[in-house]
Amino acid sequence: MSSATPVIEVEGLRKEYRRIRGRTTVAVDGLDLSVPSGGGVFSFLGPNGAGKTTTVRCLLGLVRPSAGQLRLFGVDTQRDLASVVGRVGSIVETPALFPGFSGRRNLALLGRVVGIGLRRVDEVLELVGLAERADDKVKSYSLGMRQRLGMGAALLRDPELLVLDEPVNALDPAGIKLLRRLGDEGRTVFLSSHLLGEVQQLCDHVTILARGRMIAAGPVAEVLERGRASGVLVKVADADRALDVLAQAGYTAERTGTASQDELRVSVAPARAAGITEVLAGARLFLHELRPDEIDLETVFLELTSEGGA
């Protein structure tokens, strides 16, 4: 397989769930997605019901797509998933393991299916920080510990690709570090999450999904830029007069509408903020404060996915 083959390719994926009484829910609606080889952490974002889990389930052969093509390492998953599944580790929603068995036994049983021994099981338990609780029953684990055990199961086969659907509770700082390290080792981590802050720290690339369609994709920084024009926040004593002055000078400015009545947002790149000070100072309006209006993924996400934003 050439190294240029994308790790994940999705083309025109559509998935309808048929419900009783003949009504259908379109969970994914013509999704295209490509995750290149070479490693890194890719995130898959979208509000509840956007179709993230459905996409992951289609990819892993758990549900049958209504239309579209899915490839893992260049292999059509609807034809021959079995030949590549060993290179993929996954968690789908809450990782399902037998509550009455210990963590070690759960992993040992999975390992046995493909001839992985107890050595590797213990190694992985160590890696996800469960070595000390390995012999306790899973039902006595906390939610995060279960997620970490699920992560351990996903890592057991030493996969090139990790598909993690909502690994939120496994993403404590240690978990984030682990994923980061796996990404840096050249593995591909594909994760869907709602913890946008963490995703922003962790991910190289992001794909944003809403109502079953892709609405933005690319390196995190680029998607952030695309979110909206950047701006600066300005505080002055006489906000009304400042608005007039700025408008006359050709700037687009508005009240931020936050608690402080004297804060304005001026749509201008932070690098050109000097122009604002000059204009305002010329009108004898002196700044209390000037700072770039930073955009974070969360804001962009909310804007992009809000009604009509797609």
């Binding site: 892993l60 052969g61 758990l62 079995a82 599944v85 990782p95 399902a96 999975l110």
Partner: peptide, 14 residues
């Protein structure tokens, strides 16, 4: 009931 079939099928999809 426990959903463990999901885990198993991601290991052996046949």
């Amino acid at each position: 009931r426990w959903g463990t079939i999901t885990t198993l099928l991601t290991w052996e999809p046949r």
